[in-house]
Simulated assay, not measured.
Amino acid sequence: MIQAQAVDTEDGGNAPAVEIRVHADPTQLPVVRGIAGALAAQNNFDVDVLADLRLAVDEACTQLIRRALPGSQLICIFHIDEHRIHFAGSTTTENASATPDRGFGWHVLRTLTDEVSMHSASSPLRGSTTTIEFVKQVGGAQE
């Protein structure tokens, strides 16, 4: 099942935000990639930004899905303005120490984005919540 909703933004409502929730399953990757691409296209970002965003979202979500506990949701939030895209993806994982920042996938994320981080927090109910966040500066948005 896919859920989408508008969410309040941290900047007082200036940047549009979209939140989606899907099963933490590889079959949902095309849906998340498609939404990322649609949001970039809707905001008139050039083709290179659109391609980078789709690849970065795919890699971040893939890393999260690999760590997700069975039955978990993948929650993705996009904050977009004319100069940058902020993405945060999170899911429930087994433990809070699983935060590698090396390997080919992480290199891809560093190459495609301007800022990237991964962090985990213990959950009182089940496992930990692991989040990958990145920022892609746009600068070359088309009008």
Rank of each mutant, 00 (worst) to 15 (best):
D46N: 15
L55M: 10
F45E: 10
I2M: 11
Q137R: 13
P26D: 14
Q137P: 08
E94R: 10
H79C: 15
L69C: 05
G34K: 00
F104C: 11
T129F: 03
L125V: 14
S90T: 11
T92S: 11
F45N: 11
L64P: 03
G37W: 02
T93M: 09
F104V: 14
T111Y: 14
S97I: 09
G103I: 13
V108K: 04
R110W: 07
R21L: 02
D48E: 13
A68E: 04
G103W: 12
D48C: 01
F87C: 03
G89R: 00
S122N: 10
E19T: 05
A4C: 00
G105C: 04
V108S: 04
L55P: 00
P100Y: 08
D81I: 09
I80T: 05
S120I: 07
G13Y: 07
Q73I: 00
L53Q: 02
G34S: 01
D8Y: 06
G71N: 02
A51W: 02
G89S: 05
I132W: 02
A51F: 02
L50S: 09
V18A: 06
M118H: 05
T113Q: 05
T113M: 12
A4N: 01
T92Q: 12
G12S: 13
V22L: 12
L50A: 09
E133K: 09
Q63R: 05
P70V: 03
G89P: 03
I85T: 01
A51D: 12
G34F: 03
V22N: 03
I35E: 06
R110V: 15
Q3N: 04
H86Y: 15
G105F: 04
